[in-house]
Design a protein around this nucleic acid. Sequence first.
DNA 1: AAGCCGGGGTG
DNA 2: CACCCAGGCTT
Length: 359
Amino acid sequence: MTTKPNPATERAPEAIAGALLTWFDAHGRHDLPWQHPRTAYRVWVAEVMLQQTQVATVIGYFNAFMAHFPDVHTLAAASNDDVMAHWAGLGYYARARNLHAAAKAIVAEYAGEFPRTVDELMALPGIGRSTAGAIAAQAFGVWAPILDGNAKRVIARLAALEAKPGTSAYEKPLWQLAERYTPRVRVIDYTQAIMDLGATLCTRSRPDCERCPLADRCHAYANGSQTRIPAPRKRAKRPQHETRVLVVMDEANRVLLEKRPPAGIWGGLWSLPEVAVDADISVLCERRLGLSVENVRELQPIHHGFTHFELRIHATRVQAGDRARIMDASLQWFAATARPGVPAPIAKLLDSPQQTLAL
DNA sequence: AAGCCGGGGTG
DNA sequence: CACCCAGGCTT
């Protein structure tokens, strides 16, 4: 059968890249922290932090991370707790776990020198096709397509691709076009340029097509479909969950924290011990923590919204009796001033003046 | 193909 | 409040 040719695929790809690069020289972002200096290690850490996380949010974390883990050897040799603490608040904590594992692999298998091919990069934990392409292109100038959220939006509009995001009918042609448009020269700048265009002009809502260097080649702009491409993803209503955490204080005003299992919500982070909502606190503390408690007091519940569910967190504060001995390695006392990174809502609770952790 | 994984920005 | 963000991994 005959299919209508897609205008975006017919055009000379060099013209797209050329127009984009000319625009980039004048209007692109040239002062992002990971661009100066642009080492493979810094590009890699930045790319992982930037997965599903906005640039403005990442910058502060990136600078702090680099100050503490200046190179891949330092990162590989660090403790998991130290790495997780520097990720606390960023979310998607599997990224930090994978980052640490990948650092160890790069030291062990590559003597600390990053591999330069997409396939080798993709074999490292936490690096998928798009991130591998970004590292290869930006760190080494190796030709490789990227397809992050920005590039997807730009290319989908160029091609007026109406397929539903998340389906292969959407992803496959996008990768094909991403390869076609990626030039053999100036791959570092091109990779940055298409992301910058998506971040500054070809935005999800209210794209500024009047200033777009690709407007005269954009099929969506030509037929006025740019505001409904890509189609929004309908999300199921978020279920409501409840849980309870314990704020256990000892005589020295230290608080008891629990290292969470690697998988699941807040995986690998230290948090307040989580118990059943209707738990008998005294009995539970005696049996699970091996300590007697006094001054059991209910605190103000806090509410936290996740992407896929909402959580109402009840909090019970108790004072640990004498001779409190915590045997479990996943439970540890921490001073308020020297505690590890904890999830954002827990940090908020612990830092809240009204909670007044002191008894 | 669909679900899981966070916290913050934006309209 | 809805939707998204320099996605990847698991099932």
